[in-house]
Amino acid sequence: MDWEAIGVSLRLAGVTTAILLPVAVPLAAWLALTRRRIGVVVEAVVALPLVLPPTVLGFYVLTALGTRSPFGQWWQELTGATLAFTFTSLVIASVLSSLPFAVQPMVTAFAGLDRRLLEASSVLGRTRTGTLLRVMLPMSKAGLATAAVLTFAHTIGEFGVVLMVGGNIPGQTRTVSIAIYDHVQAFDYATAARTSAVMLAFSLLVLTAIYTLRRRKETVWPRL
């Protein structure tokens, strides 16, 4: 069993989730409540990673982070190191590719809230941020949990983007899914089978958790 790869995957998923949720919550709130037409466009952009081949997303991220791109150069001047093929570049790529998994459950949760509760909050003198923190989030715990679990799980299962951006550096950018691929390439079927079984169990566990949350949502938070 490739514990080092599992460690990298867990670390990557944790960091990605920690970065994504604070970004996704206000974005989802805006998407759920805006009446502007631009909202549709933003929603489409957010959903892009769902339909885009991971290699395409990976390609763009790799190009953007490379030393020839303005961002890559700026990063190099700032830190003295290149960005491509590092754990940081993996995090950037994962944040982008997991964005819809964090945003969409929150949009669904927020859009399902009774608008009058939000209006009541604003009449009582609260700002939009105040309403988000005190009414929308507390009433969308299931949506928030779903977003977190999905983001974490999707990052663990990410393959194409990681392959494009991360390279295959053990302890740095070699995640579980890449490791399994390597084992198969090296005809080490036994290790590949063990690691795959772990991933299968993990995925099943995650989905069970999400569906449990969904069911509870219907009984614990009755709409008034």
Binding site: D114, R116, L117, E119, A120, S121, V123, V135, P138, M139, W221, P222, L224
Partner: peptide, 12 residues
Amino acid sequence: GYLFQDHALFPH
């Protein structure tokens, strides 16, 4: 102060 038709109390 605004009183909504169906009260709109915060359930949480």
